[in-house]
């Protein structure tokens, strides 16, 4: 959270104490509960967490695309010094695509199935750019974008169904960067894809961030994808940011038991005999009002205080923030969590 108070000038996007509520059959569920992070220029930040942790809701809240039963319950979203969290629909129209764009999980939903991709892209340009470039120059621009994301120029005249899943995702990325936005939010961009397509898209996002200087917020459940692209990371659980900061610091020396668990739960191809862990239980219901730490029900190290008091986010060192009552024991926990939750997936051999 302290990240938000750093040098304001180089901050592109700041999310400050964001809260989002959902109306759910009479009850109110808090999907995002006081999340703060900041995105610097040219940086790629990853938001990781499991389903229902609120990571996609953050994306929707930033773009003001929340469903009708969801609403911003507090906090600010500051884009280049302007608080856009209370912008009107018209003001947001000017910001979406042009300033912040979205690469959704399902590319098929983002593309109109009965329109050629060329005309969809040209429309996007026309909707945002007042100066009337001729259609031909716009089309040329679109074709350049297509080449940039690794698609051939002529395929732009195809319909979405003529593309494979990976190509569609490339096309949506091309559309997302068309207006040269300052921020691209990629919401689970590879979940629907196979390994090889996933690797292609990861490489594409990486080159956009490194070579073209696009700032990316990558939302995913897969920490190995974050490891490939991001410089900084936020680990989310039950709507709260439990640990965040520099990716090396967070994952090489995690201080929150959930981060430790997440890291140890992933199999890795480099180390087949790694003991995987599995954390029993499931995240608390959204509608449940949490008195203490959101992870306390599943945490093996939870003490009475964890059930009762919401932990503050503290700075462990430069660019490493954790919300846990028992950070002083982190070293011990890292070893013990594997003994407690380790499974024998890979025999004892």
């Amino acid at each position: 959270m302290q990240a938000a108070i750093e040098n304001e000038n180089e901050m592109l996007l700041q999310v400050d104490d964001l809260k989002v509520d959902y109306q759910m059959e009479g009850a109110v569920g808090r999907a995002v509960d006081g999340v703060s992070f900041a995105l610097r220029k040219g940086e790629c930040i990853g938001l990781v967490g499991e389903s229902g942790s609120g990571k996609s809701t953050i994306a929707k809240a930033i773009l003001k695309l929340l469903p009708s039963n969801g609403a911003l319950a507090g906090g600010r979203v500051i884009l280049k010094g302007r608080d856009i969290s209370h912008f009107t629909e018209e003001e947001m129209d000017a910001i979406r695509w042009a300033e912040i764009s979205l690469v959704p999980q399902s590319a098929m939903n983002a593309l109109n199935p009965v329109q050629r991709i060329s005309s969809q892209m040209v429309e996007t340009f026309l909707a945002h750019q007042a100066k009337a470039d001729s259609r031909k120059t716009l089309l040329d621009k679109c074709q350049q974008l297509f080449e940039m994301v690794g698609l051939s120029r002529n395929r732009i005249f195809d319909y979405p169904h003529q593309f494979s899943g990976g190509m569609r995702q490339r096309a949506t990325i091309a559309m997302a960067i068309a207006l040269e936005p300052s921020v691209v939010i990629a919401d689970e961009p590879t979940t629907a894809l196979d390994v090889i397509m996933q690797a292609q898209i990861i490489n594409l996002l990486k080159s956009l961030s490194e070579d073209k200087g696009v700032s990316i917020i990558l939302i995913t459940h897969d920490i190995s994808i974050v490891a490939q692209i991001c410089q900084r990371v936020g680990v989310m659980y039950a709507g709260r940011l439990v640990e965040s900061g520099d990716i090396l610091k967070v994952f090489n020396n995690p201080f929150h038991p959930y981060t430790m668990g997440l890291k140890a739960a992933f199999p890795t191809i480099k180390e087949l005999k790694k003991t995987l862990i599995s954390i029993p239980g499931s995240p608390p219901l959204l509608t449940k009002r949490l008195e203490g730490c959101c992870f306390s029900d599943r945490c093996p190290f939870s003490i009475e205080q964890c059930q009762r008091v919401i932990p503050h986010t503290v700075t462990i060192r430069e660019d490493h923030y954790v919300a846990c009552h028992r950070i002083e024991y982190a070293e011990r926990f890292r070893k013990e969590i594997i003994d407690i939750f380790g499974t024998r997936v890979r025999g004892q051999s």
Binding site: Q198, A199, S224, A227, Q228, F251, T268
Partner: peptide
């Protein structure tokens, strides 16, 4: 080999390595 090399590895380093991803479908 292509399938294995395309798997992202949860190893954290400053300089990112490019994944090997074969082209085509």
């Amino acid at each position: 080999r292509a399938l294995i090399e395309a798997v992202p590895v949860p190893e954290f380093r400053r300089a990112k390595l490019k994944l090997k991803a074969i082209a085509g479908e």
